[in-house]
Structures are given as C-alpha cells and as structure tokens.
Amino acid sequence: MTETKNTITFTPERLAKAKEMIARYPEGKQKSALMPIMHLAQEQFAWMSQEVMDYVASLLDITPVEVYEVATFYTMFHLEPVGKHVIEYCRTGPCVLMGGEEVYAHLTQKLGVKKGQTTSDGLFTLKEVECLAACGWGPCFQIREKYYMNLTNDKVDDIIRELSR
C-alpha cells in the first residue's frame, strides 16, 4: 500500500506547475486550484485513483473527501482505469442531426466495445459525452485535447488506424 502511494508523485515540472497554479488565487483560496491540478494529475496518471486524489488533497492541504466530491461531480475525470486513448463521443441533438448516431454505430462496431468499455488491447476507451461546443462541425469526438470534427465512417477508420499504430 505505502509502495503505491510513493509512486504517486508529480514530475518536477508538474509539481512546479501545480505550485504556480496554487499561487494564482487570493490568500486562503487555494482550493480554487483543485480542478486545474486534477486535470494536471489526470494528464500524468491517466485516471483518478484514490491514491491520486489523496495526493492532490495533500498538495492543496484539503481533506481527501473534498477531492472525491469534485471528481464524482464532473464528467471529465475518469474514476476507473482507461485505455491509452479515451474517445469522448458527442451524443447530443445537433450532432445527431449531422449523422452522429450512424457514425457512432460504426465506431462501436469497429472497436467492438460499448460505452464505458475499453478495447481488449487496451488502446481505446469509449465514453459518451454531451455537446462539446462544436455542433456546426459535427459529428465530433474528442481525444484528450484534440477535437475530431465533421466525422464520417471513413474518417473514423483513418483516425483509428492512425492511433493504433
């Protein structure tokens, strides 16, 4: 147990970044840095295990439950292990009008997974999300910071092929 805990530490760059984030807020309001630091943590550790959340709490000097509360409220934080690429697929109305359901069906078939599942090779996790503020460029999904827009079945094939290499 203690051993896993020890492995949960930010890289020196991220630790510096976290300190800089904490310093952005007024005296005594360092809790505002919670979400920025959680994003930083997920970038390094891929998902928010309890150890990761406890580590974040220690950085901010808040109780672990304050981190759990936030992690369970916001959909961007993964509470279970995820594959190398997390595909966050928009399932909201405007994208549906642009053919979002057909492309989604193709994607699930291609990956052989349903929502929330990870492919057996550990490469892809499929998540359904709500409107990504790209409705005129739909259908769309996001992988980490990158938006993939105006999707078609062919484009999906290309993206998956590219990322599987």
Partner: peptide
C-alpha cells in the same frame, strides 16, 4: 490587473 484562466471539469 491579473487574468486567470480556469478550466471546468465537464458539467453543463
């Protein structure tokens, strides 16, 4: 004046 950009976490 200082500007801070704050990320949300996915919640309408």
């Amino acid at each position: 004046l200082e500007l801070v950009v704050q990320p949300g976490g996915g919640a309408y």
